[in-house]
Nucleic acid binder design. Structure first.
Length: 734
DNA sequence: GAGTTTGAAACT
DNA sequence: CAGTTTCAAACTC
């Protein structure tokens, strides 16, 4: 079983990793037995029943299906539908579909379980009950929470039945007002039975228009019960609160889930598959579900990685990563780190967080393809042999994916190595920091020296810095403006700059000398980036000092949970779209110099600014003057650039026109081939031809023709000689 | 490039 | 929360 280094784990928020939430489920436990009394009323039904008796884990995804309340069940498309209420309608629908729906109803919850695929192993997903948790942003009486909607969980067609049960947690909650965006299980190949199961849980989408700024993100712990062998009790996946009381944690199995406070938050859930011995196991999945969040993605291991039901701790289930985002501006990137073979990075532009966990997998094959529904997030899966929680459909070919701009349909998955995302293997201490507030672009990756199981917070930039070709980029929403892929370091607009600006403009190197680049003084650190090509001294803002960096991040977040959030955000209604979140405090600059963060962001000061002598307002003549000067300067620069470009182009054209070109090779021939001797020889040839014509008494017209013909021959010889000379020169590298 | 100014961040 | 110190960027010369 993989173990995460204690020091790193201690720095990780418990939302990310909670090992206590994982527990084993008794074999004899009846379906739905794992359901907790306070479980969230969510029903999950699988429409198809898998018949794979060998692996029992094969899952094929047929595309995501958006589910609206209550929900519908279609047996034909191998889908698991999560819905708040397991209504009789769903049961009837399942029955009508020819499946064997199971309805689990307990107090405070409604659960519907239907058979998936052909194996007859149901998947039950149980979600925590929302009403019981104090501090929950929404109460049971909240109309918004009354009609939660979830998206469809798609499971590969031929795998065994599995139960996905959302367990109740005392904490959970905002799920009710949210729409479960997608739970998808990757299709599994029938061949392998020992591979772990991957689950991806994404955050729920805030379909209710709830405030994206919801400050608290209750965590819904998840429990996953899986079963492998046919005839065994149904596999159950339970999503429950991190600190489920009745759940025993499975050692070595951990789930990392990011907090989902804001819409841009990302939830990452990795679930280790149960061992083969256990007929039924449950893994608690801390699922962060908050208002304005979207996600619930459960992905099962692909074909190469069959599900392991046994209790052995050596087998690591594939880790899943879910990305959700508000406004749809989210994606994630998974990239193997150069320094860590097992490191895998996931970049979430929406929140710019990265959660990475890699383990060596016995088999490697992951494929991806554009997910059908428009709701599916565009993503790019790299060849890093990473199993990821993206809608992945079996692919027979392995493709090397080059970084490219994310498009809504761009999905490529390749797996060449045997690395997998996994969960922490050891129990992790409760970590308070909320990952949603981590520096933008942060990546959780195995820390140096921590083996392949440690986590390291890696800035998104590091992905670019490492220049790793294999990568995975997921765009959780088509609305995300950047979507430029990993090489452009996609990230949210920073400080009012558009994504294009942020990505196109090279970051200025810092010059920190005393802060070790681990304080917000350092722009690199403040932007969640590693220092790269900076001029800093004693820099700790790198992967080599990940432990210190994590601590620094934690310190900053403790001091200010908003520390790593963009300072330039949307202002009040009626005000400018962009304004400084805290306002400036300028005293001497008049807010017309770059000392002023408002002015630097090219926005005007707002009512929340505490500046003195502010001149950075709409009608300010000084500001207008400065703006005009700046505009004029910019125009001059542009004009100069255009003039240079034009001049260069003209020179190039002139050279092209005046330079002889070899028709055969296409290359230019130097004038030096037409030397004086060549000219004289040519003229002699022409004169000789003229003499011959004269001696033979040729007519004038014929004489001219012969001379011109000879001239042509001369030219051809010149060109031929020049070409040979050029070729000879090239052959000897002259 | 060195020195100064500035304001955010960090600290008390 | 306010005052002070620290820090690095912005600016000036």
């Amino acid at each position: 079983m993989d173990v995460v280094s204690p020091e790193l784990n201690s720095l990780l928020p418990d939302e990310i990793m909670d090992t206590e939430a994982i527990e084993d489920i008794p074999h004899s436990q009846p379906d739905g037995a794992a359901v907790q009394p306070d479980q969230l009323p969510i029903s999950i039904s699988t429409t198809t029943k898998t018949t794979d008796s060998v692996t029992g884990t094969t899952v094929s995804t047929s595309g995501l299906q958006k589910l609206t309340a209550p929900f519908t069940i279609s047996a034909a498309n191998h889908q698991i539908i999560l819905n708040k209420v397991a209504s009789a309608q769903a049961t009837e629908a399942a029955k009508s579909a020819g499946t064997q729906p199971q309805v689990i109803k307990q107090e405070g919850q409604k659960l519907l379980v239907t058979a998936i695929g052909k194996s007859g192993q149901p998947i039950v997903l149980q979600l925590p009950h929302t009403g019981s948790k104090p501090g929950v942003s929404q109460t049971a009486g909240d109309p918004k929470s009354q009609a939660p909607q979830f998206k469809v969980v798609t499971i590969g067609g031929r795998s065994e039945l599995k139960q996905v049960v959302g367990s109740a947690g005392n904490q959970v909650t905002t799920l009710q007002a949210q729409q479960l965006k997608a739970v998808q299980i990757a299709k599994k190949t029938p061949t392998s039975s020992a591979a772990p199961i991957k689950f991806i849980i994404t955050k729920t989408v805030n379909s209710k228009g709830l405030s994206p700024q919801t400050s608290v993100s209750p965590v819904i712990a998840g429990r996953v019960l899986t079963q492998n062998s046919p005839g065994m009790p149904p596999r159950t996946i339970t999503i429950s609160e991190p600190h489920n009381t009745s759940i025993q944690s499975l050692p070595g199995k951990k789930i990392a889930i990011s907090p989902l406070k804001t819409p841009s938050k990302v939830t990452v859930v990795s679930v280790a598959s149960p061992t083969s011995n256990a007929s039924q196991k449950s893994v608690a999945l801390p699922v962060n579900v908050a208002l304005g969040q979207q996600i619930l993605t459960v992905q099962q291991s692909t074909s190469a990685s069959p599900v392991k039901v046994a209790a052995s701790q050596n087998i690591k289930p594939v880790q899943s990563v879910a990305v959700g985002g508000v406004g749809g501006s989210q994606f994630k990137t998974i990239i193997p780190l150069a320094t860590q073979p097992n490191v895998q990075q996931i970049q979430v532009p929406g929140s710019r967080f990265h959660y990475v966990r890699l383990v060596t997998a016995t088999t490697a094959s992951s494929t991806g393809q554009p997910s059908g529904p428009s709701t599916t997030k565009p993503m790019v899966v790299s060849t890093g042999a990473v199993r990821m929680s993206v809608p992945i459909v079996q692919a027979q070919t392995i493709k090397q994916v080059a970084p490219k701009p994310l498009t809504s349909a761009a999905v490529v998955t390749t797996t060449q190595t045997q690395q997998r995302l996994i969960m922490p293997a050891t129990p992790l201490p409760q970590i308070q920091p909320n990952f949603t507030n981590l520096p933008p672009g942060t990546v959780l990756a195995p820390a140096p020296g921590g083996g392949n199981v440690g986590y390291a917070v890696v800035p998104a930039q590091y992905v670019t810095q490492l220049q790793q070709s294999p990568f995975v980029t997921l765009a959780s929403s088509s609305n995300f403006p950047a979507s430029t892929g990993i090489q452009t370091q996609a990230r949210l607009p920073l400080n009012g700059l558009s994504t294009a600006e942020a990505t196109s403009r090279p970051r200025k190197p810092c010059n920190c000398t005393k802060s070790q680049c681990l304080k917000l003084y350092c722009d690199c650190f403040a932007n969640g980036e590693f220092c790269n090509n900076c001029n800093c001294n004693n820099c700790f803002n790198n992967l080599e000092h990940e432990t210190e960096r994590l601590k620094a991040i934690k310190t900053c977040l403790d001091r200010n949970p908003e520390a790593f959030k963009p300072k330039i955000g949307k202002g009040k209604e009626g005000e400018s779209d962009r304004r400084h979140s805290k306002g400036c405090n300028c005293k001497r600059s008049g807010c017309l110099k770059n000392y002023c963060e408002c002015y630097e962001a090219k926005i005007m000061c707002s009512s929340i600014c505490k500046c003195v002598g502010c001149k950075n307002f709409e009608e300010s003549p000084e500001r207008k003057t400065l703006m005009h000067l700046a505009d004029a300067a910019e125009v001059r620069v542009q004009q100069q650039t255009a003039a240079k470009t034009k001049l260069s182009s003209q020179i190039s054209d002139l050279l092209m026109r005046t330079t002889p070109v070899i028709s055969s090779g296409g290359g230019r021939l130097p004038y030096t081939f037409v030397t004086k001797e060549v000219l004289e020889a040519t003229c002699e040839c022409l004169l000789e031809q003229a003499k011959k014509a004269e001696q033979t008494h040729q007519p004038q017209a014929e004489t001219e023709r012969l001379i011109l013909e000879e001239f042509g021959h001369c030219l051809m010889r010149i060109i031929s000689s020049a070409g040979k000379a050029k070729a000879d020169c090239a052959s000897i590298n002259c």
